[in-house]
Write a protein that binds this DNA or RNA. Sequence first.
DNA 1: TTGTATGCGTTATCAG
DNA 2: CTGATAACGCATACAA
Lengths: 334, 334
Amino acid sequence: MSRPTIEDVARIAGVSIATVSRCLHMPDVVAVKTRERVLSAVRQTGYNLNAAAQSLRQRRSNTVLVVVPDIGNTFFSEILGGIEAEASAAGLTMLIGDTGRIKAREDAYVRYLLNGRADGALLLADPQAAWFDIPTRNAVGLPPIVTISEVGPDSGPVTVSINNEAAAAAAVGHLIAQGHRRIAHVAGPVSNVLTEQRLRGYRRALREAGLTLDPGLEFPGDFGLASGRAAFERFQALDPHPSALFFANDEMAMGFLASAYAAGVRVPRDVSVVGFDDIHFAQSCIPALTTIRQPRAEMGATAMRLLLEIIGGAAPASVQLPYELVIRDSTTRA
Amino acid sequence: MSRPTIEDVARIAGVSIATVSRCLHMPDVVAVKTRERVLSAVRQTGYNLNAAAQSLRQRRSNTVLVVVPDIGNTFFSEILGGIEAEASAAGLTMLIGDTGRIKAREDAYVRYLLNGRADGALLLADPQAAWFDIPTRNAVGLPPIVTISEVGPDSGPVTVSINNEAAAAAAVGHLIAQGHRRIAHVAGPVSNVLTEQRLRGYRRALREAGLTLDPGLEFPGDFGLASGRAAFERFQALDPHPSALFFANDEMAMGFLASAYAAGVRVPRDVSVVGFDDIHFAQSCIPALTTIRQPRAEMGATAMRLLLEIIGGAAPASVQLPYELVIRDSTTRA
DNA sequence: TTGTATGCGTTATCAG
DNA sequence: CTGATAACGCATACAA
């Protein structure tokens, strides 16, 4: 025995397959008695629509593919929530693909989309060229793509993001306003577009305050806890210490906090710390972390709406949403 | 213009569609010159396989559906990593569905599976009845399911987990060994199977040590940061205070640590804390958290392997993997 | 080595 | 209101 098909149902109900299909999709168009017979046959057989056949026929999958670079990064979950809300409202199923920032895996999802298994894709990472490759996308009618959050010059025509440079400048501006003059920056991974944007904001804020840029105060990082810990070592090695650090994300700031605490360096008494992203745990850091909040749920929802518009034939413009400086306990006057 | 089909390629290459198909799937069976012509036509047209047509024909989707209850919970990411490794090795694409523990969303993924869009499913949460419903699954040949981590009596025939009760007992046993006699437990959400299992382990450890069970030391919780903070309030209200707390997960423990720190209660000087899960941030808590580590990547990999076995026609048994008590700085002698 | 022809399970068109 | 039937795009058994 294999899966029951629409034909099995039709036979048992004593109707044509067309009627069965109608019962499932336009129930009010079929006679009540017929409908009852059909639905009963459906239950009896345990019938389920074959999605492959349906998409083949309808030329769409009612699925949206969401590609994340690292599912372990809690930053993404709220974005996914925003996407889900809009997607399910539109009758689409949201499926998440995790690339782990590995090229082969990203390629697999590119293929997934190209094969028509999704009607469109939302990318939560700076996309590789493959997503927009001329050779693969020269055929028209390919599924549309919207890029969220990690938006750079190669992110395609439609994007949703915040102004990372301005946000970083605001974060550093806050430190400057608190009286800090010697402010370090812990950057993200070199290849990431956000790294560059946030670094630019850091530099701009210093420049605008008339402070000199010191390359020795720009620490490398990779968005991971460990690089926050490493930043603490560099911090300690500097003489005089910076009085504040601006981290390109919260996780690194948390690593720094842990190392600082262990070493008896108190935040914000001895040094002020600002993160970026306002991840879930930022509020429960010790001390609670001052950071930049991105409207993540709204970013996801907006991107999903844009995607639906494109699918519907429109050509919407990219969107930039407002960020917010969230001041907590990790910063104070120098 | 719409997507090119195999027929377009065939026409341009001057061969039949069968040959095109063979070029794509069994390249060595077709003449070199022919193959070159075909592949060139593929490039020229930007042709991509239509997955719907392919799965309709082959009666499988080469996709595995992974259902998580809450993508924001970092606990799951490592499991996903383990799954991905095995899945891609087997030529399957892993797709993640996030239910947010919302019934309607879970149902959507049940349907997804039933519709044949995935060849099998891995559930990272105690599954609702719908996954194993007799009416929907009485038809044979439906895609198999393996449940991971949150395993209870209704988790289906094949599961991968640790012995949560024993692990909880080990965690509490550690506290007892350190000399603690007044140990509180902060439980998970009431409906969760893990809550019950870990609570049982807590009670068993106390009983076996000859300590009396005090219902007043069993605090409610929901796995969230906030309930960890609430636990701190209860802790403070108790006289005498417990000298240690065992939390049903790390996130609640982190909430407690934050509140305790803010209130000037020092861990482990004033109170010892044990979590459960060893999430990413557990190592960077202040202080670093003693907890139970589950072999998450291996759990994922094992589950994926079991699923493949079932798909291959085997009937493997459930697996229980070893856990590990990770002792860090949040516990010390009473 | 290549081509022909059939069917996978639906939906939608068109008659009745 | 219902039924017959033609695609949808591909893989494969069978012929050549």
